[in-house]
Design a protein around this nucleic acid. Sequence first.
RNA 1: GCCGGAGUGGCGGAAUGGCAGACGCGUCGGUCUCAAACACCGAUGAGUGCAAGCUCGUGUGGGUUCGACUCCCACCUCCGGCACCA
Length: 833
Amino acid sequence: MTTETPARGERTARFDPGSYERKWQDRWEADGLYRANDDDPKPKRYVLTMYPYPSGDLHIGHWYAATAPDIVARMHRMRGDNVMFPMGFDSFGIPAENAAIARNIHPAIWTNANIERMRTQFRTIGAMFDWEREVVTSDPLYYRWTQWLFVQFYKAGLAYRAMGAVDWCPKDKVVLAREQVVGVERRCWRCDTPVEKRDLEQWWFRTTKYADEMLDFSGIDWPEPIKLMQTNWIGRSEGAEIDFAVEEATAEPIRVFTTRPDTIFGATFMVLAPEHSLVERLTTDDRRTDVAAYVANARRQTEIDRLNTEREKTGTFIGAYAINPMTDERIPIWIADYVLPGYGTGAIMAVPAHDERDYAFARRFELPIRHVVAPRDGEPQPDAAYVSHTDDEVLIDSGSFSGMAADEGGLAITARLAELGRGETAVTYRIRDWLVSRQRYWGAPVPIVYCAEHGAQPVPEDQLPVLLPEDVDFAPTGVSPLQSHEAFLAATCPVCGGPARRETDTLDTFVDSSWYFLRYVSPRDAEQAWDPEALARWLPVNLYTGGAEHAVMHLLYSRFFVKALRDMGHLSFDEPFEKLRNQGQILGADHQRMSKSRGNVQNPDDLTARYGSDAVRLFLMFIGPWDQGGPWNSSGIEGVHRFLGRVWGVAQPAALRGTAEIPGAPEELVRALHRATHTTIAGVTQDYEAFHFNTAIAKLMELTNAIVRARESGLSPTDAYAEAVDTLLLLLAPAAPHISEELWQRRGRPYSVHQQAWPVADPVLAAADVIELPVQVDGKLREKLVVTPDTPADEIERMALASEHVQRYLAGRTPRRVIQIPGKLVNIVTPRD
RNA sequence: GCCGGAGUGGCGGAAUGGCAGACGCGUCGGUCUCAAACACCGAUGAGUGCAAGCUCGUGUGGGUUCGACUCCCACCUCCGGCACCA
């Protein structure tokens, strides 16, 4: 699409992005313009966007995600930083394997072909990626170090193998980490299939060790919602663990966790999870049949059913009694599936008067309900009621603790229990350890061998990588194809040299992505995971961008990795990403997530071919706030295309237009152009920094419109005009790198526009000569005064009161007050009636 | 249920205590053209008026303030996250 720009005199070049965009992409690449050098003395800045999964084709979302950090990276580079902005591929994972099964292509071939295609497509964005640093996680050069890291974690006791009730995706036939199971419906994060529970022996990373430290976000600039999501996910609860003796003297006490030790006088029964280890021993003979039936049934329940809060409470009495350590009262012990085996101690003291779930259970099974806290000045509650928690409540009917404030009483009760040796303060977390093993082929093999005599042994570091064999059968059998590969299975025990069997599980791809940002500093180092000097120079990442959907997966795991590696002595910083910004999602025109099955995917290639990369970049950034995303509607791209056409028009060298000499351009017009130029510098700089790309582009449009008007007034031969145009190109360069480079060159400026210094606003030139001051009467706009900014307040007041319009609304009354906000407005307040 | 985010013209959005609707899309009118497309110029929140203007207007209802899209209280709707977590 080309546009004839209006020309005075001689012909000007046509605006045709197709004629120059590719040329500049090739030139930048040939010149290594965006290579980040380790020995550059300028201050370093590491800008990173989450690397993609090589699914096949670049879509509009990739453009959206890449353009914003590219703008910021480019601006920082122009401001004098040594910027590293690398890109790579998260290339292990199940889709490649599914493609292999469906189409009989080896995952490596499928993956590499996709990477090849996406690399080419990525180039059309015109981003300043340093491709020399590319990482590909399925490359043995990379996964060798993923395996090496696993071995380090194993040796440090942070990787372990254990039996667990794990989440299993029946479609992908693979276990999932707790973080990868989404929503109430408990669905697989990747394929949306409801997961099942299975008891399996698996490999785990001890993320819980860093639960507390990961609650601390001081020193990192992250969006509040992400910090909150991580905080909630980690789910720290403070309270007490309390031992309840069992009536049968030989049995060990039941330990419960509670956040409300203040309510212990109201504990009228106990509930154990059906899976609790004491159930078998405590159940009396007469209750054994019922209890066994209940336990069996609970085991058969899907987790969805079990976690359904709407469902009526179920449970059964096991025949045994415990002793409330504060009241010495004999209370019955029940089992119920609303108590979860994996949280706290898997047992609770039930306080039905002050806990909704216990209340529902007590009502159902006619158990006693006793109030032990009450609002300080509240009405007495009927016995059968549930009393919700309030800020100001006191203990009642709680022995010597009665009358104490609830929180204070909780501490006092816990202290008393500690004296008695019956309890202590305790903290529990909801976060679980990270399940990292996967029963699939296309991942980094877990570098472990099993020896009949010496058990699980890590593969010695000099034998890494454990390579994936290529000649495997991908028939969907439900087990990893590695399990039937005899040559792969056969291994040697590193301790005794005897025969051993190789682990056939591979690592979760989130293990790969938990450290890729470290590998970019020395991506081809064959001797080590990273060059420590280069790491010290570049890390931590100064700016990280990506989707908020990774809040409790990738972003949490990466923090865990860095903290663990720090404690192992491999690096010396605490957080991977100093500043994080999330992009919103670009939805289809139907307001749904773009997906091939919905057929609402917008292909950027057609748009790029029609309007050019710059227009697509600008349009995506102009839609609205970047963190908001929104439905796709391509009709607006015409607007940015027209804008670029105007930029093209005003930036043509004056000689080309054959403009006649304008004698003495009016000085106020020149000042107005200066003012527009310098206010735009300040505004755009601020907006880019704040990720307000939509308003930055609006300001660039305004400056362009001002330049168009200036040209029409005959200002094009002036220095102010040349400065305005040059400034426009410099400010536009990060967002629309191709047209800026092309016009910069056509104006005879030195290559490259992307290596020029960022313009600096002159506050004197930016200052307004006159301001328009709104005058309100009782808060309603009635007049506008045009004054110089230094007009004294009393003069402004006199002018305002003298105004005919103001006089009309005053109607002879004397103003009660005159409020002046300097430079902003005048408000005249009339007397009240 | 709990925790976040959001609600402004026909549409995307701007304004974080001070002129609501910047910038753009769309629409209408015009210029250019044999005609169209492109481009350019003008208008464009609603109501009312010949007009200057006036009245209303930022999800709803209250409040604070000289002044509220912006702050406070109560609610409604949509989006996201978490959810028998004791």
